[in-house]
Amino acid sequence: MALLSGLLVGRRFVWGRSVIALMLREMATSYGRSPGGYIWAIAEPVAGVALLTVVFSFLMRSPPLGNNFPLFYATGFLPFIYYISLTAKLGQAIRFSRPLLAYPAVSFFDAILSRFLLNTLTNLLVFVIVAGGIIVVYGLNVSLNLPVILEAFSMAAALAFGVGTINCYLFSVAPVWERVWAILNRPMFILSGIFFLIESVPEPFRTLLSYNPLVHVIAKMRQGFFPTYDARLADPLYVYLVSLICMFFGMLLLNRHHRMLLNEGA
């Protein structure tokens, strides 16, 4: 029994060390190539929110919710770019870590998990800095509902992980899918509720838009920042169900074909 426990601890240590090593490699290659690597991770969403604020402040007197344009658009834009960037990065996980996957101690799941953890922590930090900066700069009196905000972020994380695992297989077996995926996501910027509230959309378009899981994520996020907003159409169960289905098929395909994908790329 003691021997079995020792083996399990040893395997966990090796597994954890592999994931941490992959995370450090990701940090060095993605953010460490230039001094402004992490600064750009913050500057990009700030520029996006600023652009939306300038454009729509000329078109509307006040945002659809609250009275501060930057906060309204940040609560939609930040979860959206987290999802988009993470699904793309997870899709490239095998390609990025292919040389290391030849070692028995490193698996395709390690490559996916390391990218997921690093980019989730990075985006969570960016979210806190940008949203907190808006509140401080504009002197907003915001009553934050932290459990709801964390729930919304966990919904976005689960959805990105599920879709990202399928992308990891599809990007490897059909590289053209990476371009197709980028094209398909362009209208999502408009259809995910960044600029509007789903409750204000008339039927039957409201029902059609509700099939987009990101609509539920953004609605739940805004509920955490605006106490007067009742995100009655947000359905976390639907988001988690879509996430689990995507994750199941993604992991199933990768588990069956990851060796073939590695040999094709060799």
Results as ranks from 00 to 15, higher is better:
His257Met: 10
Pro187Ser: 07
Leu144Arg: 07
Leu71Gln: 00
Leu244Gln: 08
Ala41Ile: 04
Gly6Ile: 09
Ala182Phe: 12
Ile134Thr: 03
Trp177His: 06
Arg11Ser: 12
Phe72Arg: 09
Phe195Arg: 10
Asn145Trp: 07
Ile198Val: 06
Gly32Lys: 15
Tyr138Pro: 08
Ala266Val: 14
Phe225Thr: 04
Pro70Asp: 15
Ile194Trp: 03
Gly91Val: 02
Thr120Ser: 02
Leu3His: 10
Asn167Gly: 00
Leu254Gln: 10
Gly48Arg: 05
Leu24Gly: 12
Asn185Ile: 05
Arg95His: 04
Tyr82Leu: 00
Trp40Phe: 02
Leu101Val: 07
Val215His: 05
Val239Asn: 09
Ser172Gln: 04
Asn185Leu: 06
Ala131Tyr: 08
Ala182Asn: 11
Leu208Ala: 10
Ala234Asn: 02
Ala156Ile: 03
Ala102Asn: 15
Gly132Met: 08
Phe69Ser: 01
Val173Ile: 14
Glu44Val: 14
Leu22Trp: 12
Val19His: 01
Thr120Pro: 00
Leu86Tyr: 00
Leu144Asp: 05
Ile129Lys: 09
Ala105Leu: 15
Thr165Gln: 03
Ala43Arg: 12
Gln92Ala: 07
Trp177Cys: 03
Ile112Met: 02
Pro213Phe: 07
Arg61Gln: 13
Thr87Leu: 02
Ala50Lys: 00
Asn263Phe: 12
Glu151His: 05
Tyr38Trp: 14
Ser18Tyr: 13
Ala41Gln: 05
Asn141Met: 05
Trp15Thr: 14
Phe248Lys: 11
Leu150Ile: 03
Leu101Tyr: 07
Leu170Asn: 07
Tyr229Ile: 04
Met247Thr: 08
Ser62Lys: 11
Glu178Thr: 02
Gly164Asn: 05
Glu203His: 13
Ala50Val: 00
Leu117Ile: 12
Thr228Cys: 10
Leu100Asn: 14
Leu233Asp: 08
Ile149Tyr: 01
Met251Trp: 07
Met188Asp: 04
Phe153Glu: 15
Met27Gln: 11
Leu159Gln: 06
Val217Met: 09
Tyr229Glu: 03
Ser154Cys: 03
Glu199Leu: 02
Leu144Phe: 09
Leu51Trp: 13
Arg256His: 10
His257Ile: 06
Gly48Asn: 08
Leu7Val: 15
Ser154Trp: 03
Val239Trp: 13
Ile166His: 05
Phe171Gln: 03
Ala47Ser: 08
Gly10Ile: 13
Phe77His: 08
Ser57Trp: 04
Asn123Ile: 02
Trp181Val: 03
Leu244His: 12
Met247Ser: 10
Arg222Tyr: 00
Asn145Arg: 08
Ile94Leu: 11
Cys168Met: 08
Ile166Arg: 06
Tyr211Ser: 07
Ala93Tyr: 00
Thr75Cys: 13
Ile190Val: 14
Ala160Lys: 00
Ser210Asp: 15
Phe13Lys: 12
His216Gln: 07
Ser154Met: 04
Leu214His: 14
Ala111Arg: 02
Ala152Leu: 10
Leu170Ser: 08
Gly76Met: 06
Val128Ser: 07
Pro187His: 06
Val136Ala: 15
Gly76Cys: 09
Arg232Trp: 09
Gln223Asn: 07
Val55Thr: 11
Ile218Gly: 03
Arg12Lys: 13
Gly37Glu: 11
